[in-house]
């Protein structure tokens, strides 16, 4: 899923500065699962903003609303009844696709992203998420013992590990596992080291972001 985290409160305060009436739009998708932008987090943020406004002695009305998803116009248009309220700002709590979709559906509204969209990943433990994919558009993990060197090696090496791998950790930080250590361990224990060795892959980055913004159109669904 898409992993995101809330922006620092001080940055969010700059979005609402001088505004009297705002709408917080939460999302029930990935950001609910990673505890960043669901109904619960919207509630917490709304209270923080109301408290702060009260402390500063400025008027601020914060409304909250949760959409099923914000990456689909079908759900975005559920906002239409609320648009009569004339909000000074709409703060989307979805991944950064949400505020873009809202802004394009309602061009007259001022829309702000509450979250920083960080990476594609999963939960390692309660409250810990890690990157697992960079959406390169041509998955090759089966050649690397099921591990992704593109997203998990700091240098995206296809013939690693580099000379900085030490004690299972990446040269960049002791907080980062060297994925190449894991790949070597995996292909060794699988007994597939021999076929692995002849690999000398060169990545074709056209399917990645490097080829320009990507789009998929599925013929059979385009009726």
């Amino acid at each position: 899923m898409i992993i995101a985290e809330r922006k620092p409160i001080d940055e969010i305060k700059t979005f609402v500065k001088g505004k009297e009436k705002i709408l917080l739009v939460a999302c029930r998708g990935c950001v609910t699962v990673c505890n960043a932008g669901g109904t619960k987090e919207a509630g917490i943020l709304a209270s923080l903003l109301r408290l702060d406004a009260a402390k500063e002695g400025v008027p601020l009305k914060v409304d909250e609303l949760t959409l099923e998803r914000q990456c689909d116009p079908e759900y975005i248009f559920e906002l239409s009844p609320s648009m009569g309220e004339k909000y000074d700002a709409i703060l989307s709590m979805a991944c950064s696709i949400g505020p873009q979709f809202i802004a394009s559906a309602y061009p007259n509204e001022k829309v702000y992203p509450v979250l920083n969209t960080c990476f594609l990943g999963g939960a390692l433990a309660h409250g810990v998420w890690a990157e697992r994919c960079q959406a390169c558009g041509n998955c090759i993990i089966h050649k690397f013992g099921g591990l992704c060197p593109i997203s998990r090696c700091s240098k995206s090496l296809l013939n690693g590990p580099c000379g900085g791998s030490a004690g299972g950790k990446c040269e960049v930080s002791k907080e980062i596992d060297c994925v190449w250590q894991l790949i070597v361990e995996k292909v060794t224990s699988d007994g597939t080291m021999d076929e692995f060795l002849s690999l000398e892959l060169v990545k074709d980055w056209r399917t990645s972001r490097d080829g320009g913004p990507r789009k998929i159109a599925r013929e059979e669904l385009l009726k």
Binding site: N159, A166, G167, C178, V184, E200
Partner: peptide
Amino acid sequence: FADPEDYRVIRAAK
């Protein structure tokens, strides 16, 4: 001297 130790000679071979 980097890790995994056993693999270093294999990487040199590559």
